Amino acid sequence: MSVEPRQLIGVRGMRSRDVPAVLEIEQVSYGYPWSERIFRDCLRVGYHAWVATDLDEQVIGYALLSVAVGEAHVLNLCVAPDARGHGVADRLLEALIGQAEAERAERVLLEVRPSNKSARRLYKRCGFERIATRPGYYPAPDGREDALLLALDLI
């Protein structure tokens, strides 16, 4: 494609009608995907949720964030396999950080699998730093995988 990715996509609030497309991306992206109920519960309780769309308004990525007591937590950020590598995750992460700043969060936290090298590069590029390891946090085919706990200080 010759179109710049930032011209190609938009980021908007996730709607209930987006959940089937979000769930499809989740299921092809993860061995242990979130259920439809988890996504609907996140919307119901008011977590901040966004989708990235292409020119045809097709959902190509999504992100969810909770904010409480001065701390924001990235709950999920995922891009459709055929849309990866085009800046979609960057745009979604910008939306998450912007929301955290708007709510005066002092810090943004997230967990990432050590094996998810592309996500780790994204977070490093955006200024996140490793602050801890959560042993056995994620389910994995051979048992459990640790999570790296990353933080971005906003103040």
Rank of each mutant, 00 (worst) to 15 (best):
I131K: 07
L43K: 12
R40L: 15
I25S: 10
G136C: 06
A63F: 14
E94K: 12
G87D: 08
R130Y: 01
A80D: 08
L77G: 05
R130F: 00
S35M: 13
V79F: 11
A140Y: 00
E94T: 12
A140I: 02
A140P: 03
Y47R: 13
L64Y: 13
R125V: 04
A83D: 03
L92A: 12
I97R: 09
L65D: 06
E71V: 14
Q58S: 13
H48K: 10
D56Y: 07
C42I: 01
A72C: 04
G85T: 08
G70W: 09
S66A: 13
N116F: 03
A83P: 04
W50T: 04
G127F: 13
P141D: 12
A89I: 06
E94Q: 14
I25G: 10
D41E: 15
E101C: 12
G70H: 06
R125Q: 13
R144A: 05
V69K: 04
T133D: 02
P139A: 05
Y138G: 01
R134I: 00
L64F: 15
P135S: 08
Y32V: 02
P33C: 13
A147Y: 00
D90Y: 09
L75D: 03
W34S: 07
S118A: 15
S118Y: 03
R121Q: 13
C42D: 06
A52Y: 10
L55R: 15
E94R: 14
E94S: 14
E26D: 11
Y138T: 00
E106S: 11
A80V: 01
Y32L: 02
W34F: 15
G98L: 07
A100I: 01
L149D: 00
H73N: 07
G98T: 07
L55D: 08
D41R: 15
R113V: 01
I38L: 15
F39E: 08
P139L: 02
